[in-house]
């Protein structure tokens, strides 16, 4: 496991990966619990943003300053640019196909 520096980096990486896993788990639970496409898309948004962020951040710390850290940063910025576009396209397609959003109340 190398010196104390390396061990500390590994510990911090594990903490961040666990945080990311927590968000991924909650998003999966949301996928099951929420009532319709629109609400489920919000749960998936959790994966896209916080889940991916903590996972990639953990990996970047584990890698240390290297070429791979730079690549992780590139993946990270691309993810944050592309995810909203994909989510928006999916949801707009659902609405145009005539899916009625679930609303609260007696229905």
């Amino acid at each position: 496991m190398g010196g104390p520096r390396r061990r500390m980096a590994t510990t911090i990486a594990i903490i961040f990966l666990s945080l990311g896993l927590f968000f991924l788990l909650v998003a999966a639970i949301g996928m099951v619990r929420l009532p319709d496409v629109f609400a489920r898309a919000h749960a998936v948004g959790l994966t896209d943003t916080m889940g991916a962020f903590f996972m990639l951040f953990g990996l970047a710390i584990y890698e240390g300053f290297s070429l791979n850290m730079l690549k992780i940063l590139v993946v990270f910025s691309l993810l944050y640019l592309l995810n909203p576009v994909v989510t928006h396209a999916t949801i707009r397609a659902a609405l145009r196909a005539g899916v009625k959003p679930w609303m609260k109340g007696p229905s």
Binding site: A41, H42, G45, P84, T87, H88, I91, R92
Partner: peptide, 25 residues
């Protein structure tokens, strides 16, 4: 629009230069 979609809990559904349709949970 992208910022709205990126924030969990709100999604931009339709976009025009003057108006955004937003779905919020």
């Amino acid at each position: 629009g992208n910022s709205i979609t990126l924030t969990p809990g709100t999604i931009t559904v339709e976009v025009s230069p003057n108006e955004l349709t937003v779905h919020s949970i």
